[in-house]
Lab assay of single mutants.
Amino acid sequence: PQEEYKKRAKKALKKGDEDTAREALKRAGLSPDQAEEFIRRFL
């Protein structure tokens, strides 16, 4: 589910792994723009 992928993305970002985070967010159904926004907000 979407929440699970978002959790995964946050874990990846904590490790500084933005590529894995983007992949997880893409799987969560976010557009690339939404994924970038999510990452920017998190960092």
Results as ranks from 00 to 15, higher is better:
Gly29Pro: 00
Arg22Gly: 02
Ala28Asn: 02
Lys11Cys: 14
Ser31Thr: 14
Gln34Asn: 05
Gly29Ala: 03
Ala12Leu: 07
Pro1Cys: 14
Glu4Asp: 12
Ala24Tyr: 15
Arg8Lys: 13
Gly16Ala: 04
Lys6Thr: 10
Glu23Ala: 10
Gln34Trp: 04
Glu36His: 05
Glu4Arg: 10
Thr20Ile: 07
Lys14Pro: 01
Lys26Tyr: 13
Gly29Val: 00
Leu30Met: 12
Arg27Tyr: 09
Gly16Glu: 03
Glu36Lys: 05
Glu37Met: 07
Ala35Trp: 04
Gln2Pro: 09
Glu37Phe: 05
Leu13Glu: 00
Ala28Pro: 00
Arg41Asn: 11
Ala12Phe: 06
Thr20Tyr: 09
Phe38Thr: 02
Lys15Arg: 14
Glu37Arg: 07
Gln2Ala: 13
Glu37Tyr: 06
Phe42Lys: 02
Asp19Ser: 12
Arg27Trp: 09
Ala28Ile: 04
Gln2Ile: 13
Lys6Leu: 15
Lys7Val: 08
Glu3Phe: 08
Glu18Cys: 14
Lys7Asp: 13
Ala35Lys: 01
Leu13Arg: 02
Ala28Trp: 04
Phe42Asn: 05
Ala35Tyr: 04
Arg41Lys: 12
Lys15His: 13
Tyr5Met: 09
Glu23His: 07
Ala12Asn: 03
Lys10Ile: 15
Lys10Asn: 07
Lys6His: 08
Ala28Leu: 05
Ala24Met: 15
Leu25Lys: 00
Lys7Met: 10
Arg27Asn: 12
Leu30Lys: 01
Leu43Asp: 05
Ala9Trp: 03
Leu13Val: 03
Arg40Asp: 05
Lys7Cys: 12
Phe42Ile: 08
Tyr5Arg: 03
Lys11His: 12
Pro1Phe: 14
Ser31Ile: 03
Glu4Asn: 09
Ile39Val: 06
Arg27Ile: 09
Thr20Glu: 13
Arg22Ile: 05
Lys26Glu: 09
Ala28Tyr: 05
Lys11Glu: 15
Gly29Cys: 03
Gln2Arg: 11
Leu43Trp: 12
Pro32Thr: 10
Pro32Ala: 12
Lys26Met: 12
Phe42Met: 06
Ile39Thr: 01
Glu4Gln: 09
Pro1Gln: 14
Arg8Ala: 14
Ala28His: 03
Lys6Gln: 09
Leu13Trp: 03
Lys6Pro: 03
Phe38Arg: 00
Glu18Leu: 15
Arg40Met: 08
Arg41Asp: 09
Ala12Met: 05
Arg41Leu: 09
Glu4Phe: 13
Ala35Pro: 00
Asp17Val: 02
Gly16Asn: 05
Lys14Cys: 14
Glu36Arg: 05
Arg22Ala: 04
Ile39Asn: 00
Lys14Thr: 11
Arg27Ala: 14
Glu36Phe: 05
Glu36Ser: 07
Lys6Asp: 04
Glu3Tyr: 09
Lys26Asp: 06
Arg27Val: 07
Gly29Ile: 00
Ala9Met: 02
Leu43Tyr: 15
Gly16Leu: 04
Phe38Gln: 01
Lys11Ile: 15
Glu3His: 09
Leu25Tyr: 01
Leu43Lys: 12
Gln34Tyr: 05
